[in-house]
Structure formats: C-alpha cells, structure tokens
C-alpha cells in the first residue's frame, strides 16, 4: 500500500505571499495554514490555474487536516487527472499543491482589486451559489 505523505508543500516563491495574506488581510488574520492552502487551491482549481512547483517549502502537516479537507484534495486530484491518481497519494498532494501555487497569485490579485475585498469576495460566492443552485 503506497504511503501517504506527511505534509503539504507550497512553492518557495509563495511563502511571502501566504505570510502577507495572514498578516495584512483582515479576513485571513489568525487563520490556520491549512485554511490558506485550501482556499488558494480552490481558487486555483476554479480558475484552472495549475502551475508546476519550483522549489518546495513545507507548509501544513497532514495530521491537521480533517477527513473533509482530505476529501477535497482527493476530489481535486480526481477531477484534474483521473480516479487512478488515487493509487499515488504523493501525486494527489502534488496536484493540490500545484493548484494552490496557481491560486495564490489570483487570490492576491482579488485582494488588490479596487473596493472592499470582503464585499467583492462575498459577491463572487453569492454569484457562484446562484449559478449552482
């Protein structure tokens, strides 16, 4: 049985971005690292922004993830490749990391847009919700 990796990584070039996010954006203040990672990954997946990683930097230990968090990572990997990717847990995590790498600059761009980020973000979610339901 293939072994599960014990942590998630981010690209070295994103370290500062995640750091700034947590320090400077009110909505992300005092957030757990996994929340930042999953948000970036979701934005990356939504926008089909999967970018291969350069130099990697440890970011989240897997033990902090709940089953729901892991399920999301798996769902992303399945939809990005195929169900067979589940045979390689390392690959599953890698795919998630690549979407997070693609998503973080998009999140930063949203934050830097004019107007209130919180309001814009809320509106985007509501639009998304209305589209889905």
């Amino acid at each position: 049985m293939p072994e599960k990796p014990d942590r998630l990584y981010i690209d070295q070039s994103d370290v500062q971005r995640f750091d700034d996010l947590e320090k400077n954006v009110r909505m992300f203040e005092k957030r757990q690292k996994k929340e930042l990672f999953l948000t970036a990954m979701a934005i990356g997946w939504k926008n089909e922004a999967r970018i291969p990683m350069g130099k990697r930097q440890e970011f989240v230990r897997m033990e902090y993830l709940r089953p729901e968090d892991e399920a999301l990572i798996y769902a992303v990997a399945i939809s990005a490749e195929s169900v067979d990717v589940l045979a390689d847990p390392l690959k599953v995590m890698q795919i998630a990391e690549e979407y997070a790498h693609g998503g973080i600059p998009l999140l930063i761009a949203k934050i830097n847009q004019p107007g209130s980020f919180e309001k814009n973000f809320e509106k985007e979610l509501l639009d998304n919700f209305n589209e889905l339901f």
Partner: peptide
C-alpha cells in the same frame, strides 16, 4: 466565507 469558498469553488469537483 472562507469555509464556503472552497465548498462552492470545488463544488463541481465534489459532484464529479
């Protein structure tokens, strides 16, 4: 907002 962002953005991945 943060919790539901990943649910809504990844809803299609969950469904598939």
């Amino acid at each position: 907002l943060i919790e539901y962002a990943r649910l809504l953005f990844l809803r299609k991945a969950i469904d598939s």
